[in-house]
């Protein structure tokens, strides 16, 4: 196992990259997902079809293809030199937003009907009702789905190798190539993923309990 300790700095670097892309993707994806959900619900038919097309693309194609398109195809058309960190973060954000939009929209629809009317009845505008009434309830409902999204996005990070980002799995591949010790290397890396994903899931569970509306029992 000594070789793993020797390689620890490399592994940690890879892990940090994995974490960075996942967190950026999930958080920015949440913000963008909220905007997409609102656009789909209230933006009229044209905007709604554009958003649906967008979601189809990002949910219907492998993330590695999306990375390649944004790293090679689009920059070459625009004659710019891509930065792999920027492209990676962008694609992870856009991809995650496509999934999160679905969760958020569903949750908004679940609380929408009566709460919107009640909000309007006290003089709030539609936008204010969304902001102060609908979203605070919908986002609470989204937390469990959000944990899934986090875990699935983490597991998509190895695709980043395609644009030259050496995250955790790529580092492990490199170590295996040098040392011919795949068993220990991959097992160790698998444990890192497992601990990371389950810790975040645990945090989300605690958050879910903490923000639960008193007296409301929702089983998900």
């Amino acid at each position: 196992m000594e070789f793993l300790i020797e390689r620890l700095p490399q592994i940690i670097n890879g892990f940090i990259l994995t974490v960075e892309f996942t967190i950026l993707g999930v958080l920015l994806g949440l913000l963008f997902g909220i905007i997409l959900a609102i656009g789909d619900l209230y933006g009229g038919r044209a905007l709604s079809s554009i958003i649906r097309g967008y979601v189809e693309f990002f949910r219907g194609s492998p993330i590695i293809i999306q990375l390649l398109i944004f790293f090679f195809t689009i920059p070459s058309l625009l004659h710019v030199i891509p930065n792999s960190f920027v492209v990676g973060a962008l694609v992870f954000t856009l991809n995650s937003a496509a999934y999160q939009k679905g969760y958020i929209k569903g949750a908004m629809e679940a609380v929408f009907e009566d709460q919107m009317t009640a909000g309007l009845s006290i003089g709030l505008s539609k936008a204010q009702t969304i902001f102060y009434v609908i979203l605070p309830q919908a986002l609470r409902l989204v937390i469990p789905a959000w944990t899934n999204e986090f875990s699935s996005l983490t597991k998509s990070t190895p695709a980043l190798l395609a644009i030259g980002v050496y995250e955790l799995t790529s580092v492990a591949k490199g170590i295996t190539a040098d040392t011919f010790r795949p068993l220990e290397t991959y097992a160790f890396v698998a444990v890192i993923y497992l601990v990371w994903i389950s810790s975040v899931a645990k945090i989300a569970d605690v958050l879910y309990e903490k923000v639960k509306i008193p007296g409301v029992e929702i089983s998900v």
Binding site: V111, D114, Q115, A118, I122, V216
Partner: peptide, 15 residues
């Protein structure tokens, strides 16, 4: 905002 409304099914803000 100038009209108060009370609903049959109450419709309080649950959160």
């Amino acid at each position: 905002a100038r009209i108060g409304f009370v609903f049959q099914h109450i419709w309080l803000f649950r959160h």
